[in-house]
Design a protein around this nucleic acid. Sequence first.
RNA 1: UGCCCGAUGGUGUAAUGGUAGCACAACAGGUUCUGGCCCUGUUUGUCUAGGUUCGAAUCCUAGUCGGGCAACCA
Length: 554
Amino acid sequence: MTESPAAPRNFIHEAVESDLQAGTFGGQVVTRFPPEPNGYLHIGHAKAICLDFGTATKYGGRCHMRFDDTNPTAEEQEFVDSILADVRWLGFDWGEHLYYASDYFQQMHDYAVELIKQGKAYVCDLTPEQFKDYRGVPTRPGRESPNRNRPVEENLRLFEEMRQGQHPDGSLVLRAKIDMASPNLHMRDPTMYRIKHAHHHRTGDTWCIYPMYDWAHGLEDSIEGVTHSLCTLEFEVHRPLYDWFLEQLGVWHPKQIEFARLNLSYTIMSKRKLQQLVEEGLVQGWDDPRMPTLAGLRRRGVPAEAIRKFCEEVGITKYESLTDVALLEHHVRGVLNRIAPRRMAVLRPLKLVLENIPEGEEHLCEAVNNPEDPAAGTRPVRFGREIYMEHDDFMEEPAKKFFRLAPGKSVRLRYAGFATCTEVIKDPATGEVLELHGHWDPPDAGLKVKGTIHWVPAAHAVEAEVRLYDRLFAKENPADESDGTRFTDHINPESLKVIRAVVEPALADVAPGDSFQFERTGYFCVDPDARPGTPVFNRTATLKDTWAKVAGRG
RNA sequence: UGCCCGAUGGUGUAAUGGUAGCACAACAGGUUCUGGCCCUGUUUGUCUAGGUUCGAAUCCUAGUCGGGCAACCA
């Protein structure tokens, strides 16, 4: 593992340490990451993954990768595959500990029979409407089902009939007999099994009854010898039930500990909402680079290491918070700054003709590949009479503190000496600046200039498609619809701008997934859509732009 | 309104009865062939009211505010 050394301690680690000290679980630490294979993983899951695997690693234990596949109508093999790939990409290794809840279906069934025999579970034929009615509401106790005192033998017979497929979907359920007056709704005789004549992606048609989460999850943990079952806050009210089942059965009893899920500003994390974005075509798929899915972040060019560092830094608490997406961006830049090779790319080209360089004459410049990493070496870049520069690096009437090119002014050309602007060629009709002419001075001319700009040699410029991504939502907390608006109302119309840029020849031959820093512009990652000769780059993040702030202030 | 959980700068967190610290963000400056990186500095915080204590962010009580819970979902 490439985890940074001192992962900060949190209240869960304290609990683990105290269990270790007390010998509660025989000195072991076993955690698990238990996704349901019904969607793609997102950065919120990454927090859980880092916690589950990180805690196990920290205390010399192990973490199980387990699919909680107890609902065949929602789950698919496609999601199993993507989840596995995403966890691996994030940098975690479950070794041989890959499990499926569906592998325990027989064992869970047998435990259910045992509970029936103990008189602690019964088959109930209440309709969903009646069920709801009998359960009551939080402020008032429920009523007992008329089936509650069905004899054990009859319960066994009916449950067996359920298993054999003799009853239609929804006609019967198996319920735990706990307490219809409990202030905790989940303790009011919760459902353990429902009938679903559905094809399961792993067990096929072997089963037509499927266990409910509360019944299944604790058993999965117990069967695998999990010690610390870490989950999000909304399961807190389920804990008494988790404990109740394992106590009745007298089996291995892990400790469930809850923590707050991750919320990111300008982002939505709900699986349902993400699905809606995909289905309504508001994004281009689960791996759209604007999506907070791991697949999307990967395609965007966000390094796994940045996600791990981010997850480590947001910490683990029981307080529901909204983390600033700027913190993620900070780690993205931090990692990429260290490893991304530098290249020159001009996003909005403006031609600059250096009149004192003869046509056809070329100079070779030596460009540094990564100032943060001397081992990355240098590369040659050809330089000649005509170059492309960034349109934004020219101002006909320069603002105060504008250190770039303007009529009569000079700038340094990165690695290639100096340019002084002598003439501005404009479209007479629109006034638009079309081309610049100027004078060139070699690097040793020693002109006193404050600015350096990047450029691409016109004779060797390579055209590229560049996708400029920005945050998907313009509202800090788009998931909050309490103001009467819907999250889709706040989609940032500028979240994607596709442009044609010119890049230096060294960027002509790149592979999908390669990351670069386009000097002075941002970090970019090669998209799988790239074809030989026409690279496609996704903007991962901009560079910090002090000038934009100064200019923005007016 | 029944039960459960929580509350520390703008944001995320640390301090486990003894100097409220770190990171991000913001701001100011230094450095610089990237207005990047790096470096220095500044601003801003313990929800309220009582209580325990020599001493409370921390313990107790009450309140306020926020979140969660009424799928045959997980």
